[in-house]
Design a protein around this nucleic acid. Structure first.
Lengths: 265, 265
DNA sequence: CGCTTACTTGAGAGACTTCAAGAGTTGTGG
DNA sequence: CCACAACTCTTGAAGTCTCTCAAGTAAGCG
């Protein structure tokens, strides 16, 4: 699993982690801890149950599980999936370091999807009850929590826009640029990264078939826009991808939406 | 504008409204006020700026407007729209009584869409700063606010699922059933209601063209599933619509998602 | 090294869109 | 109250994009 190294900064790499804290975490400014002072950070650490290791393909929670804790991704990637009668999988989001999983279960108290690890990873367990208590006492934390919920709404809306609107080429370009900016926000390369998900997963997210994704990737490569070897992807001609996205159907809205996405540059 | 009467209960009908309060509001249990005791209700009323009348086609806010207040729909319908370079409109949601508008602007402080009245209506202005203050003091209100944000995420996800997945027929059926259950939750008929939006708006929401919507509506009518005269719609064969939605691609997830939607029966 | 899983590529079919008119409604001014 | 204009909606025919079906190839894993 060398792939993990891509998203695991040196600081948090050691196999035997002492007792990680939000204060030390390199993804602090992308997460709930954003904008908190030292005292507040300590209190947040206080309610975080534990850092939980998860293996590839392990489910963080399943459809129907009762909700009582939010998960902040420490490292690794996750997908949120729905499965239909035909056994087909549809993915509503991919989560990476600093992002929160489970917020959509607050209203009902029950998870409406599966959260599955795309690779070995680690999450911070944040008991929702404890968080609620802390929000009242730490206004900055409440503000940040609301920002993150709001951002999640924006994300889904941006996804709605491209699913309902864009031709396949633009959907893929949009996704690649989105991944790129999120990696950049994490101090990683914006132009060269590993796709953590299969072609099938990409299709399940973009509303396309595996075959279409495969053909699109080939086209992007043939056009000289990207260099691809399996899941290793390098963006060669970012401008081409950008103009593909923005020259088209509803680009302004989309770009505006993605621009507000956590981690965009 | 006789159409308004459909969503304006007798209690709130008088032209000269004295001083409406959350306590009196018939949509209380669908809105932020849900679960609050009398004292809390009064405090919520205290921060609500005013009830603002809006006319058909009026914009509650526009793309780029700075965000400082949330809007609760008192009566009337609204659409949230994005416009692209080509002048095409895409709709991310339709809002009706008791639903909150503007939550997606919390993260950036700027509205990323236009909210447009589909008919004359009224909204309650909820200053976000004041609300933040009150959330700290009224735990039940904070809980309810989080539930509403969470529900909004679920809504967009459900929309994502059908946009990326379902053929046109199922999208329309899903939307009609969703409207139906939301009206039912408001004490209105689940089987007979007015479509507040144009065919074009429906298309802009479902990711289809006006022509497709028109053909679909005709097909539904010819199949004896609905009776339609302009925007007056009556569901004749609910079972047919339901089996269309659930017999298909990703029904379970979708139904689960819609089931958690505010107002589902 | 063989098996399973993931990805690629081709050809034909189907669904929705686009383009083009035409019909029905609604609103307005004489 | 009617007539005309402006929308909104409907319907048809051709075109396009993506899917489905069907192999075939490459990679990962025991």
């Amino acid at each position: 699993m060398t792939a993990i190294a891509y998203l695991m900064p040196a600081a948090s790499a050691p196999a035997a982690v002492a007792k990680p804290t939000c204060a030390q975490c390199s993804f602090r400014r992308l997460c709930l801890a954003q904008g908190l002072d030292d005292t507040a950070l300590e209190r947040l650490d206080g309610i975080i149950g534990k850092r939980r290791r998860v293996q590839r393909d392990e489910r963080l929670y399943r459809l129907g599980d009762s909700f009582d804790t939010l998960y902040a991704v420490h490292f690794g990637h996750f997908k949120s999936t729905h499965v239909n009668h035909h056994g087909e999988q549809r993915i509503t989001s991919f989560a990476m370091s600093g992002e929160l999983l489970g917020m959509n279960a607050i209203s009902s108290g029950v998870h409406g999807e599966d959260a599955i690890a795309l690779e070995d990873g680690e999450v911070c367990e944040i008991p929702y009850a404890g968080l609620g208590q802390l929000l009242v006492e730490v206004p900055a934390l409440m503000q940040q929590f609301h920002r993150m919920m709001s951002q999640e709404i924006l994300r889904e809306q941006a996804a709605m826009l491209f699913l309902g609107n864009m031709p396949a080429e633009q959907r893929l370009a949009t996704m690649l640029l989105n991944l790129s900016s999120r990696y950049a926000a994490r101090g990683l390369s914006a132009s060269h990264f590993m796709l953590r998900m299969s072609r099938e997963d990409i299709g399940a997210y973009l509303g396309l078939t595996v075959e279409s994704i495969s053909r699109l990737v080939a086209r992007f490569r043939n056009n000289g826009w990207v260099r691809v070897a399996q899941r290793d992807l390098e963006i060669i001609d970012r401008g081409a991808l950008e103009s593909l996205v923005s020259g088209s159907t509803n680009a302004p809205a989309l770009r505006a939406a993605w621009a507000r996405y956590p981690g965009s540059t």
